[in-house]
Nucleic acid binder design. Structure first.
Lengths: 233, 233
DNA sequence: TCAAAAGTGTTATGTTTACACCCATGG
DNA sequence: CCATGGGTGTAAACATAACACTTTTGA
C-alpha cells in the first residue's frame, strides 16, 4: 500500500514572495540580499515547514521580513524547472502580496538587507525570480482590473488622486481623472470622509475609505480596465 | 553553504489533472479509480520525476491516461494542506486540461477505470480533489470568458450551434444565439467552411474552424462573458 | 407539407470615451 | 492674486441585451 509512496523521490519545497508596495509615486517590489547569494537581489523566501500549509508558510515568511500580518496574499504559481535552483532541486510556490508601505516602514526588519525597487527598474534577480516578478505584475494587473484589491496598497484613508496615481502606476498609463473617479465611485465601495488631505495641494483632496462591509462580499467583477494581458489566467 | 538545504525536510510532489471534455451536450471531467483507493473516484495523478518540469510531468501523466499529446494544459494551483493526503504529506500541483473527447475515445487506456462525469453530477472524490475540480471550473469559466480556449474542447471543425452549446454548458446558461454568433464572429477568429454538418438537423449547420494564425497571436481580451466568479485570479 | 433546427436584423439601453472649465486654498 | 492641484458634466461612439420571423430540408 504505502510502497508506492516510499519509492518516490521527495523534493525541497520553498516559498517565494513578490511583495508589492506603493509609495505614492510608483509601484515597488521589495527585494532582499539573503544568505547564500550576497551578491544578488532576490525575493524573500523560505522553506515549507512540516506543520504548516503553503499559505501559512508564505504568511510566516512575509511576517519575518515585514512584521506584517493580515496582509493580502495570493498564490501565484508553482515553479519547478529541474535546475531552477542549481544546487538542489527545489520546487518553489510563489505568492504575491500587497502591503501598505507606511505600515511596513516603521517595522522594517534589520535582519535583512531589504529595498524597494520600482517595477520598471529592477536589478537582475536570483534564479527564476525575475520570471516570478514578471508573472506577478501581469497577475496584479489582471486581478486589479476585476477585483478591488488596489486598496490593499494604500493607507486606510486615501484620496481619489492617490488612487488614480496607484492605478496609473499599476498599468503604466494615465487614466482620465473624470472617467476614473466616475468609475471608481460607481462601485459604491468608497465612503467619502469629511476630512481633507492637507499639505500636499492648496485645495486639499477629500479622503475616502473602503466600505469594508461591501468590500468583503464583493467578489464579482468590479472595474474593467483589463489592458492587453496574457496572464496565465 | 549547502547546510541550509540539508536541514530542510523534503516532501513528495504529486501532480493531479482536471481533464475537461465536451460531448456535445455537457461539460465533463474525466475521473479514474486508481491504485490505493479502489473505492473512490479521483483525478488522474502521478509523481514528479527528477528529470522533468512540473508541466512536463503533468503532460506525461495526461498522456498515460489519454494517449493525447499537444493538449491544452494550464497550471491551476498548488495544494499543500498538511494532511490533505493522510498517509504521507504530499504537495500536489494541479493542472487542468482541455481535450477533444473524440480524439480520446479511440485511444482510451484500458489500464485505468476511467469515466467521464458531468460537472454538475460528480461523485465524492479522493482527498481534496473535489476542491481542485471546483477551482478548475471557476478558472475555466473565468478564462474562457477572456481567452479563446473553448475551441480546445471541440473537434477541428465545428458548427456555431455546437459552440453555443459548449458555452451554455460551461456557464450553465442559455445564451441568445443571435447575440452569441455576432459576438463570436466579431472576433474574426473563425473561418467559415463551405461544408455543412449533415445528419443532425434537417437544414444542416455550416462548419467553422479556428483561424490558427490569429489564434496564436491572440492573447488579449476576447469575449466578455465573465459571470460572477471569485476565482483565485 | 411540416417539424426541427439554422440563420439573420433592429431597437433600446447602458457603458465607455473624449474632452475643458471652474473651484479652493496657501503662499 | 495667482499658481497648483481638485473637482465636476456632457455629448458621441460603441457595446450589449432583448426580441421574432424566415429559411432549409429530410422524413
Amino acid at each position: 500500500m504505502v510502497e508506492q509512496y516510499k519509492q518516490q523521490q521527495p523534493y525541497l519545497l520553498a516559498l517565494d514572495s513578490i511583495i508589492f508596495g506603493f509609495d505614492g509615486e510608483s509601484l515597488k517590489v521589495l527585494l532582499v540580499k539573503r544568505g547564500l547569494e550576497e551578491q544578488t537581489w532576490s525575493l524573500m523566501g523560505g522553506w515549507l515547514q512540516p506543520n504548516e500549509s503553503l499559505e501559512q508558510a508564505a504568511a510566516r515568511i512575509l511576517f519575518d521580513l515585514t512584521g506584517l500580518t493580515n496582509v493580502y496574499l495570493e498564490q501565484l504559481y508553482a515553479f519547478g524547472e529541474p535546475h531552477r535552483d542549481p544546487i538542489v532541486r527545489t520546487i518553489s510556490v510563489a505568492y504575491f502580496s500587497l502591503v501598505k508601505v507606511a505600515d511596513y516602514e516603521s517595522k522594517i526588519s534589520e535582519r535583512f538587507q531589504a529595498r524597494w525597487f520600482s517595477i520598471y527598474d529592477l536589478p537582475p534577480l536570483l534564479f527564476d525570480h525575475g520570471d516570478m516578478v514578471d508573472l506577478a505584475i501581469k497577475r496584479l494587473r489582471y486581478k486589479a482590473a476585476q477585483h478591488p484589491i488596489g486598496f490593499e496598497l494604500l493607507p486606510e484613508k486615501f484620496t481619489l488622486p492617490q488612487l488614480k496615481k496607484l492605478y496609473d502606476a499599476i498599468y503604466n498609463t494615465d487614466f482620465d481623472k473624470r472617467n476614473f473617479s466616475r468609475k471608481i465611485l460607481s462601485t459604491n465601495l468608497l465612503i467619502k470622509l469629511d476630512e481633507k488631505q492637507k499639505g500636499f495641494s492648496r485645495k486639499g483632496a477629500f479622503y475616502y475609505q473602503v466600505d469594508s462591509a461591501k468590500y468583503q462580499q464583493l467578489t464579482s467583477s468590479f472595474l474593467n480596465f483589463i489592458p492587453n494581458s496574457d496572464t496565465i489566467l
